[in-house]
């Protein structure tokens, strides 16, 4: 049953991805991008990664779609007609890269394989020790906020820096005159 759901979700993801590359109307593309995020979130839920799914649904499907829509309100909703003719060099290059990537996945352990290296490095220690060391029922939070506190600090810094960058690029002029 779970395999069937995964196959359906992945098929939809592929269809939406192809549609995004084909459709010229940017409004439709933005809505499809939001759907792509929401389907990815569903896929993550079926993999029991609810924290990641939650973030994907809130950030990818929610805020990003909204920000894209507000950008579209500032620009045009129709993509300019560019050079769209078939290029055989590009096609060969993309096919080779794709084949290499698929070849690379052959070595990857199966999903949920208990003997996969990722489950034996440091994850075991987190799973066995975190109830005694941190005592937080949600292990994701104890890894994210305590064991990996530095990483989260870096992520928060990245978000603030990105915000400052956008403010510096776009936030000058009108907004400053109105508020200051």
């Amino acid at each position: 049953m779970e395999t069937l759901i995964n196959i359906i979700l992945l098929t939809f993801l592929a269809i939406i991805a192809i549609a995004i590359t084909r459709i010229r109307h940017l409004l439709v593309t933005v809505v499809l991008t939001g759907m792509f995020s929401l389907l990815s979130a569903s896929l993550l839920v079926s993999m029991d990664a609810v924290d990641v799914a939650f973030t994907e649904a809130a950030v990818g499907a929610g805020i990003s779609t909204l920000l894209f829509l507000s950008v579209l309100a500032l620009t045009s909703t129709e993509e300019l007609a560019g050079n769209r003719k078939f290029s055989s060099i590009a096609f060969i290059l993309v096919s080779i890269t794709g084949a290499i990537l698929i070849y690379g996945t052959l070595d990857i352990p199966k999903f949920g394989d208990p003997s996969a290296p990722v489950h034996h490095h440091i994850a075991e220690r987190f799973i066995y020790e975190s109830p005694d060391e941190i005592g937080v029922p949600n292990m994701v939070t104890s890894v994210l906020a305590s064991y990996r506190g530095y990483d989260t600090l870096g992520e928060t810094t990245v978000i603030l820096t990105a915000g400052i960058g956008v403010l510096l690029l776009l936030g000058r002029g009108k907004q400053d005159k109105e508020t200051d």
């Binding site: 941190i134 937080v136 104890s142 990105a162 915000g163 956008v166």
Partner: peptide, 30 residues
């Protein structure tokens, strides 16, 4: 101590993310 620390840093993350997201929206919605 761990509970208090996690609470504080999660609060910091939440405040920063909410402020940055709203700032971005304000700019794009001008």
């Amino acid at each position: 101590g761990q509970h208090l620390g996690i609470l504080l840093i999660e609060m910091g993350v939440g405040i920063t993310v909410a402020s940055v997201m709203l700032s971005l929206f304000y700019i794009f919605a001008q």
